[in-house]
């Protein structure tokens, strides 16, 4: 995973599979950086995600709670189209700007 911090926006480029096995290390890396950089916006870029189950939603919900507690906002961008179904089911669109990747 690559992290970029610029202009108050922390972008995390997540790649590979998000499940209960891989989520903890992704979470730890992002959270450490949030607490260090104190971004106004946390942007999760899901364009490199090849698989996710509800752990990919849990990851967004957990980061939303953390960034909200620091008065920041969350954005999730480039969610691959074939994962849109889980996102729609979860209702996380209410948490911030959540966008599906255009093919």
């Amino acid at each position: 995973m690559k992290l970029e911090f610029s202009g108050g926006v922390l972008t995390a480029f997540i790649d590979g599979e998000i499940d209960h096995h891989t989520a903890p290390s992704i979470r730890e890396t992002i959270d450490k950086t949030i607490l260090q950089d104190k971004p106004d916006v946390l942007r999760l870029d899901y364009s490199g995600v090849t698989f996710m189950d509800s752990s990919g939603i849990g990851l967004i919900m957990g980061r939303y709670k953390l960034i909200s507690s620091c008065s920041g906002k969350i954005e999730v961008i480039n969610i691959p189209r074939n994962m849109a179904k889980v996102v729609k089911l979860s209702g996380i669109e209410r948490l911030g700007r959540i966008t599906i990747k255009e093919d």
Partner: peptide, 15 residues
Amino acid sequence: GGERSGLGFAVMESF
């Protein structure tokens, strides 16, 4: 709590 979305069965039922 926090990190689990609580969606496991909902995903199974909808998919």
